[in-house]
Design a protein around this nucleic acid. Structure first.
Lengths: 214, 214
DNA sequence: ATTAAACCCCTACTTCAGGGGGGTTCTCAA
DNA sequence: TTGAGAACCCCCCTGAAGTAGGGGTTTAAT
C-alpha cells in the first residue's frame, strides 16, 4: 500500500472531474484517482500523511481560486506533481502557472494521447509546457481521436507495427505478416515501448485504448 | 451485437469527451461509449445502420455548431436520445435546445448523481429539463445494468482478476493487490482465457476492448 | 455423507517478450 | 567524407506468461 499511486482531479464540473479521474485510472497507471469539484472538499480529501503523487488542477475555478490554491499546494505538499489544465490556450495563462510552480500545463483541446504523454512525463520527473515558438500546428488539423504515428514520435515502420500490436498480434505473427525476422520485430517493439514510455506491449495497449491509430 | 447499448459523447475537449465516455461506461448501462472531439468525425463514427441510443452533446462547440448539429441528428437518427450539457446555466440555453428537439439538458456543474439520473430518465423515455413541468423521478428502475458482468461464464474471483487484466496489470501485481500467490493468479488467468476462448491475456484485452467490467 | 465446484498453494516445464550485445546496408545531411 | 539514423539480421540472457502435474480447504447441493 505504500506503493499505491494516487492522483487527484480538481474541476468545478463534477462530471468532468469524475471523467478525467476515470480516464487517468484506466490510461495512466494510477491505482486510485479521486475527484473533487468543491474547493473546500479538496483539503478534506487529501491525506496529509500520504498526499497524492499528482494533482490535476483546472485553471478556471470560480473566483480565480486556482492560482492561490496552487501556491498552497506547493507549500503543503512539495512532492506532489501539479498538472494544470485549461480550456483556453492563452500563453499568458501557461506562464502564470509556470511561475506559480506547476509542473506542467496542458490545454483541454489536446488529444488524449498528448495528455497521457504529459502525465507520464511528469511522473518521470520532467515538466510539460508548450513551447511558445513551435507548437500550434499538429492539433488544428482535427481528428483528435485518431492518432498518427508521427504524433507519437514513431517512425513509419514503428507505426505499422504498433497498429498490429494494438490488434493483439504477437511478435511472431507480426514478423510473418511483414515478412520480417522476429528479432527485427522485437527491435521495433522496443523502440515503440520506450517512445511511449511504457514497459511492455500490454501497457501500450491499455494506454492507447480508445484511440484509433492512423 | 444487436443488443449492444451504445452512446456517443461530443465535446471539443478530447479529454473531457473521453472522460465523460468513461464515466458513462462505468456508471450507466452502456456497453460502448465513443467519444469525438471533432464535428467532422461525428458523422464518420456513427454507423447509420446502428446509431447510438444516446448522444451527449456539448452546447458550446466552436462556431455555435451544436444547435445545427442537433437538428441534423434529429432528422437522421430520430430514435437517438440527445442530452445536451453546458457549462453555463442560462435558462435561455436550455429553452433553445429544448425547442431544437433535445431530450434533456443538464448543467456540467450538476453532481454526477444527478447526471446519472438524467441519463436513466432519458433511457426510460422521459425527458430531463430543469424548471419545467417535470419532476425528478427518483430512480424508477435501478437496473444497475450488467455492462459486461461476470455472467460471461466467469466466477466472481475470475471477474475480479479479469478486471485487473483489462487494466494492464501483470500477474505479480494482481497477486499483490489481491494478496494471493502468483501461481494462484495464473490458475485463474488460465481459467479466464479458456472460458473466453482466447490463448493469452493480450487477446483477451483486445477482444474485450471497449467493454467495461463492473 | 458424498460429490462438485470454487478457491488456494506448490513444483516443474515451455514458450514468449524484452533488453543487451554484436553486426550489415542505405540514405540523407553536414 | 563522415556521421547519424532507420531498417534489417543474429545470438544470448532474464523474466513473465501459460500449461500440466501434484496437493489442499471450504461450502453448497445432492
Amino acid at each position: 500500500m505504500s506503493t499505491q499511486k494516487t492522483a487527484l482531479v480538481i474541476d468545478d464540473h463534477p462530471l468532468v472531474a469524475r471523467g478525467i479521474a476515470a480516464f487517468l485510472e484506466s490510461h495512466c497507471s494510477f491505482d486510485v484517482v479521486k475527484a473533487v469539484s468543491n474547493i473546500d472538499d479538496l483539503w478534506n480529501v487529501i491525506d496529509p500523511a500520504n498526499p497524492p503523487q499528482m494533482i490535476i488542477l483546472d485553471f478556471w475555478l470560480p473566483d480565480g481560486a486556482s492560482l492561490p490554491m496552487l501556491s498552497q499546494l506547493k507549500i503543503k505538499y512539495p512532492n506532489t506533481l501539479i498538472l494544470v489544465v485549461s480550456a483556453d490556450d492563452d500563453i499568458a495563462v501557461q506562464r502564470k502557472v509556470q511561475v506559480a510552480g506547476a509542473h506542467g500545463f496542458i490545454n483541454k483541446q489536446e488529444s488524449t494521447v498528448i495528455f497521457v504523454q504529459a502525465v507520464s512525463n511528469l511522473l518521470s520527473g520532467q515538466t510539460w509546457f508548450a513551447n511558445t515558438t513551435q507548437q500550434k500546428a499538429p492539433n488544428n488539423h482535427s481528428r483528435e481521436l485518431a492518432v498518427t504515428a508521427k504524433e507519437l514520435g514513431l517512425t513509419a515502420r514503428q507505426g505499422e507495427i504498433l497498429a498490429l500490436i494494438l490488434n493483439g498480434l504477437p511478435n511472431k505473427r507480426i514478423a510473418q505478416k511483414l515478412s520480417l525476422s522476429e528479432q527485427t520485430v522485437k527491435e521495433h517493439v522496443s523502440g515503440i515501448l520506450s517512445r511511449l514510455g511504457v514497459s511492455n506491449r500490454i501497457e501500450a495497449i491499455t494506454k492507447l485504448r480508445g484511440n484509433r491509430l492512423e
